[in-house]
């Protein structure tokens, strides 16, 4: 059974040291995580403030949706190939692609989160004399947190999946085992690599789903983000791709 052989391949100590004279499993995992964490962090630094500003002011929403839709139509593999040919091979061009792909879901999560805050709540805060900055930081941001993290979740998964492709272009990631396995027809290596990529994605998703649940402020009903309220009014479901409360 190939699946079992793939699992055995993962647990073979020799494969953690080196596979095909490249990095071993441990090294590829670290490299995969390095690209992912760095890209998600940069994407968040760029996208979250812009998304919060769009959500708070209501301006520029059309532009954000347009950017999201345009980027979504691009084949990721083609984007990687073209930018690496143009900018040259290296850490920076590779990161540029990941960050570019990570921005739209974060942007959407941020503005959708702020937009989902009840306007009456915001007006009440304003009537109490809060400044716009206080409203954003003390009212909108905490209430937007679950959807914002939904955007982070979707962005992270997108980047994890894209990082796996970069092994085709000579960088290190868990995709290396799938791509080199396909080239040498080593099915066991391919399957082992696929299991590792899948487990990494599912773990990251579960971790961020947990974080998302923890950020629901006290007093807000569970599962309030993107569900139908008691009155039947549907709250804006986060437009980010991956699961917010029940999925994309």
């Amino acid at each position: 059974m190939l699946l079992l052989q793939g699992i055995a391949w993962i647990f073979a100590p020799a494969n953690w040291a080196s596979v095909n004279s490249g990095l071993g499993i441990g090294g590829e995992i670290l490299s995969h995580l390095f690209y992912t964490v760095l890209s998600v962090a940069i994407a968040a630094v760029v996208a979250v403030p812009i998304g919060l500003a769009i959500g708070h002011t209501g301006r520029g929403r059309g532009g954000a949706i347009l950017i999201g839709n345009v980027v979504r139509a691009f084949p990721t593999l083609g984007l990687l190939a073209i930018l690496l040919i143009l900018l040259g091979f290296g850490l920076i061009p590779t990161l540029v692609v990941f960050v570019l792909l990570g921005i739209p879901p974060l942007l959407a999560g941020a503005y959708a989160g702020v937009e989902s805050v009840d306007r009456q709540t915001v007006d009440a805060a304003r009537a109490m004399g809060m400044t716009e900055w206080q409203i954003l930081m003390k009212v909108e941001l905490p209430l937007a947190a679950p959807l914002l993290l939904g955007g982070l979740r979707s962005s992270t998964l997108q980047i994890i999946a894209t990082v796996a492709l970069v092994s085709e272009f000579g960088s290190d990631s868990l995709g290396a085992f799938i791509i080199s396995g396909a080239a040498t027809q080593d099915y066991v290596e391919m399957i082992g690599g696929s299991i590792l990529v899948t487990v990494l994605a599912l773990l990251a998703d579960a971790l961020l789903a947990g974080a998302q649940r923890l950020t629901v402020p006290r007093g807000v009903p569970r599962g309030a983000g993107g569900r139908t309220t008691a009155g039947g009014r549907r709250i804006l479901t986060a437009p980010s791709g991956a699961p917010i409360s029940e999925g994309n």
Binding site: L157, I160, A161, A164, L165, G175, I178, M190, I191, G193, S194, I195, V197, T198, A201, L202, D205, G241, A242, P243, E246, G247, N248
Partner: peptide, 14 residues
Amino acid sequence: NVLYTIPALALVVL
């Protein structure tokens, strides 16, 4: 959701 979480490159193999 679980299916969609699996990266395409891995799904094509699995």
